[in-house]
């Protein structure tokens, strides 16, 4: 059976895949359906949903199109979540590989740094970083990655400790390969599977952190974000609760979709491993 078909056999995985596909479609289609600036005023303020079919989800306090904001917010959420997770996984995998492969003092120093990062709550780290450097898309991505790379680093290091004893690493030394090349080109790719298994949890956490930062007004001010929409809606929570509820649901669905699909992938990989 192909991995894809095995993946699609679990209902959770299907649900996750459907949600993620829809989300990706929404994110990609945003500039097509809503080519104008989603932060521009589109109609009367505080229009309820399903009243005017040119503004299906109504408008917010300033008269901005909620559906357009939702679509463009999906872009930000996904882009930041994926970029932050990719950064965290790459940095973590490299640091963990170097620590595990070099051993000795290098290992000691790198793992103490990892410990230090791990003792500070990830969200505080992100908050502090954005407050100091200032909010922009790149800074938010870096801030989230800053609190997320330690898990991948530990997993990579543990994997490398066993891989470095294998004969093909000895074989690479015998042909005179530089230790750095052995670590990054021979060992690291073989240590990746368990590291990548962390990606769904990290992407989900990154999306939530991004939303939390935006909620606190520390997101990129030039972009619509779901966290920012929730914060906006808070001022009129009694009279227009949908302004907070709609992006809130989008956020929950996204995190759920990422998590379910990720579990499906891990499950599929685990089945394949036990079969081989």
């Amino acid at each position: 059976m192909s991995p894809l078909r095995r993946f699609l056999r679990t209902p959770e995985a299907i649900a996750g895949a459907v949600i993620l596909t829809a989300l990706a479609a929404v994110a990609l289609a945003a500039p097509l359906f809503f080519p104008s600036d989603p932060q521009a005023i589109a109609g009367p303020a505080l229009l309820s949903p399903f009243q005017d079919w040119s503004l299906p989800l109504g408008t917010d306090r300033l008269g901005r199109d909620v559906l357009a904001e939702l679509f463009h917010g999906a872009r930000t959420s996904l882009a930041v979540g994926l970029a932050a997770a990719a950064t965290a996984l790459a940095v973590g995998a490299v640091i963990g590989t170097l620590a595990g492969f070099a051993g000795g003092l290098v290992d000691e120093v790198l793992m103490r740094i990892t410990d230090a990062f791990q003792t500070v709550p990830a969200f505080l780290l992100a908050l502090a970083f954005v407050s100091i450097v200032g909010p922009s898309l790149g800074v938010v991505v870096a801030a989230i990655a800053l609190g997320a790379w330690t898990g991948p680093a530990r997993v990579a290091r543990a994997e490398v400790l066993s891989i470095r004893e294998r004969d093909f690493v000895a074989g690479a030394r015998v042909i005179g390969m530089h230790p750095l090349e052995i670590a990054l080109r021979e060992v690291l790719p073989n240590a990746l599977p368990p590291v990548l298994a962390l990606s769904s949890v990290i992407v989900a956490a990154a999306i939530l952190t991004e939303a939390a930062l935006s909620f606190l007004g520390l997101g990129d001010p030039n972009r619509v974000t779901w966290g920012g929409m929730i914060a906006e809606g808070r001022a009129v929570l009694r009279t227009a609760p949908f302004l907070s509820i709609v992006p809130g649901i989008a956020l929950v669905l996204t995190v759920l979709g990422v998590y379910l699909a990720g579990e499906g992938v891990v499950e599929t990989a685990a089945v394949r491993k036990s079969l081989s």
Binding site: D167, F168, A170, G171, V174, I175, N190
Partner: peptide, 13 residues
């Protein structure tokens, strides 16, 4: 140079 016993283990899979 060296040749190992198990070439599957001794070459990057």
């Amino acid at each position: 140079q060296m040749v190992f016993q198990d070439p599957l283990a001794a070459l990057n899979p």
